[in-house]
Write a protein that binds this DNA or RNA. Structure first.
Length: 373
RNA sequence: GGGAAGAUUGCCGAGUGGUUAAAGGCGACAGACUGUAAAUCUGUUGACAUACGUCUACGGGGGUUCAAAUCCCUCUCUUCCCA
């Protein structure tokens, strides 16, 4: 299922290929996020033309709306959304964290109120696997308990115990009810910012023999140093021959750090969200297309970018679309940002293959960090 | 010709004697965004000054008052109604 093709000499970085039900995925990979069954502003064909091989969707959101009856009738999310490549679905574990005001952690699952209509729901780890079975996820994530920074060791340990218990229940349900050749399942390492808990979490999950391992609970507000410390500790203790997925990350600089630590997969709302808020990613860092300085700027967003947007439109025009609140502004910026991330990941992969990852990283950052970012 | 209402800081628009450089909205300027309750959110927006502050401001002019965007007189303009 997962094959490592190249390893970097000076770091834990690796380039591989992940064979999933719909198609194979070259790693390291960035997965665009399509929470509601759509990568916001995109048609599937626009993602195909960029060679996007896998996107992420969200069980929690799909379960609440449109609801599993609709997905079942449509024969799964792929058909429903006209996306015929891979889908990884998050479990809703992150919503346990981000919607914590309306979510209660119980021993055997989560109780929550719908953020849409306030209705009460309860889901066990097995229910979440079942939801992802109906969705038809190529990779399903286990239900986990994601925690914020600055909680006590005791709280972190408690959340970790919950995560492990749920992981075990999820794995059992998966093995008994799922076509394991068609749908894969990843566990999620938690443990907050305590290394011994991270290690313990990793070992407990490894015992359950997942198809891949994710690291959760990072990039939730901690400093870059803390992030670096935890990722460089946690990634290498995960099985070398299984895909490693860092959830919710990220920006190019965080991805470089993480690839170096041995991470293969990423997802993040960042490029699409900031695009809708007028920020574009370029060789020279992030630019805010609303800024007055682009009013008469006839140059493309990024001279070195080969995307449709950069080949056809000026900063001045894109600024105008944002100022005029035109929906195409979001579309153009999103298209460019996803293209940027894809081509960035391609270059990361190539640099690993040609054994100059370290040099690529240094060179990329020397330009990218010019504008801060 | 007669009658009525009104003119507020880039725009719209609150405010009817003193906590008013003046609500709120829009616009403008800038910032944030990391497993998406986000086409969202935050800040600034009279001038000068890093700042303490100092000026100039509610159509023009003139009054009343310790104090006026708010009261009085007058002029100019705008809108509406009746002829």
């Amino acid at each position: 299922m997962f094959e490592i093709k190249y390893r970097d000499n000076g770091s834990n970085a690796r380039a591989g290929e992940l064979k999933l039900y719909h198609n194979s995925v070259k790693t390291p990979v960035f997965m665009p996020v399509g929470t509601n069954g759509v990568v916001k502003t995109f048609f599937p064909k626009e993602l195909y033309e960029m060679d996007i091989e896998i996107i992420l969707s969200n069980s929690y959101h799909i379960y609440l709306r449109p609801g599993m009856d609709v997905i079942k009738k449509a024969n799964g999310l792929h058909k429903f959304s006209a996306w015929n490549r891979n889908i990884l679905t998050d479990s809703g574990g992150f919503q346990v964290f981000s919607l914590s005001k309306i979510v209660k952690i119980k021993n055997d699952g989560v109780e929550f109120r719908s953020h849409i209509d306030g209705s009460k729901h309860f889901l066990t780890p097995g229910d979440v696997v079942e939801i992802q079975k109906t969705i038809g996820s190529d990779i399903m994530m286990v239900l986990d308990h994601c925690t914020p920074p600055n909680i006590s060791y005791e709280k972190a340990k408690e959340a970790l115990d919950t995560t492990t218990r749920w992981a075990s229940l999820s794995r059992d349900y998966y093995k008994n009810n799922i076509d394991t050749n068609r749908q894969r399942q990843f566990g999620i390492v938690q443990g907050n910012f305590f290394k011994d808990l991270r290690e313990r979490s990793a070992n407990e999950l490894i015992n359950l023999d997942f198809d891949g391992y994710a690291i959760g609970g990072l990039s939730v507000g901690e400093t870059k140093d803390v992030f670096n410390d935890i990722i460089s500790f946690t990634a290498p203790i995960l099985p070398v021959d299984k895909p490693r997925y860092l959830m919710g990350v990220g920006t190019p600089e965080y991805i470089l750090t993480s690839v170096e630590a041995g991470i293969d997969m990423f997802d993040c709302v960042f490029p699409t969200r900031i695009a809708r808020n007028a920020s574009v990613l370029t060789k020279y860092g992030r630019l805010n297309m609303r800024n007055e300085k682009y009013k008469f700027d006839e140059s493309p967003v990024d001279e070195s970018c080969g995307c449709y947007v950069c080949k056809n439109f000026s900063k001045s025009y894109i600024r105008h679309l944002f100022k005029a609140n035109e929906i195409s502004a979001s579309r153009l910026a999103s298209y460019h940002n996803i293209y940027f991330m894809k081509s960035f990941m391609d270059r990361v992969r190539e640099s690993i293959i040609s054994s100059n990852f370290a040099e690529f990283k240094r060179e990329f950052l020397s330009s990218y960090l010019v504008n801060g970012s």
